[in-house]
Design a protein around this nucleic acid. Sequence first.
DNA 1: AACTAAGCCAACCGCATCCTG
DNA 2: GCAGGATGCGGTTGGCTTAGT
Length: 261
Amino acid sequence: MGRSPCCEKAHTNKGAWTKEEDDRLIAHIQAHGEGCWRSLPKAAGLLRCGKSCRLRWINYLRPDLKRGNFSDEEDELIIKLHALLGNKWSLIAGRLPGRTDNEIKNYWNTHIKRKLFSRGIDPSSHRPINSLNNKSSSSNSRSLKQEIHMADFFQYDHSEVTSCFERVASDAGSRSEERADINLDLSISLPCSSPPDDNKNNDRKAAIDSKEIISNSTAGKMCCHVGLPVNYAACCENRYNGENGGLQRGITCDHRLGLDL
DNA sequence: AACTAAGCCAACCGCATCCTG
DNA sequence: GCAGGATGCGGTTGGCTTAGT
C-alpha cells in the first residue's frame, strides 16, 4: 500500500534555496520555533516540502552553526568517533558543537578518507591497510601485532591488550570454529554529550540514547566494534566493575577509548 | 581563452524508527 | 497491539567551483 508522499510534489520548489525562501524560513522559525515540519511550509508561505525546510534549517540556517574549515583537533576527533561509532554521523555531530551531520559526512568523504589512506589506514575499518591485504586463514582472527597497532591508534595500554590477546589465543582451541562465525563488525551508539533541555526532540533523543546504552553490554560491544578480542571486553568489564562498582557509561567508555571528550 | 576533470557541498531520496490515536 | 503519520538518518546525486591542460 505505500506511504503517502510527505508533500504535494507538483506544487513544491526543488533545488537551491533563494535568499527570500531562507528569510521566510528563518522568520517563521524565530517566531514559532522548530517542529511540525510538515505544516511549516504552508504556514511560512513556502513552496517547499517539510523535509526540505528541516534540512535547510539544520544544515545551513541554524544560528549556532560554525562555518569554516575543520581544525586539526576536529579532524582527529572525527576520526576517533568514526572508529567508535561508524557512519553514525548524527552522533558524531553531537560531539562537535556547531557542526552538522551532513557537513561531517561530506568532510569525511572528501578529506578524512584521503588523510587516513595516506597514513596507511583503511577508513572504513580503521585498521592498517596491510592487514586487510594479508587475509590469513581466518579472516576474523588478527595477529598480536595488528592488535597492538589498534591499541596504538586508540591509545590502549599495550600490556593489557597483549595479555588479553594471549588469553584469547590460549582459549582458542575447541572454540576456534565457533569464534570464526562471530561477527566482529558490531556497532554501538553512545549518549549525546549535550545535556537534555526542554526541547522535545532532545528529550526524545536522550531517551533513545539511554535505551541504546542500557541494551548494550558497553565494553563488550565497544571492543567488538574496534576489533579487540572478545575476552578483552570481559577483561575491561571486570576491571571496571571491580574498581567503580559498575562500568560508568559515556565518560568511562570514552576514556577507555582514549577520547578526551 | 576554452575545455575537461576533479573536488566540493547543498539538497534530495528512501528507509528506519518513533509517536500517537 | 496495531496502523498510519511524522520525523530523523545515511546514502547518493547534481550542479557549481576550481585546477589543470
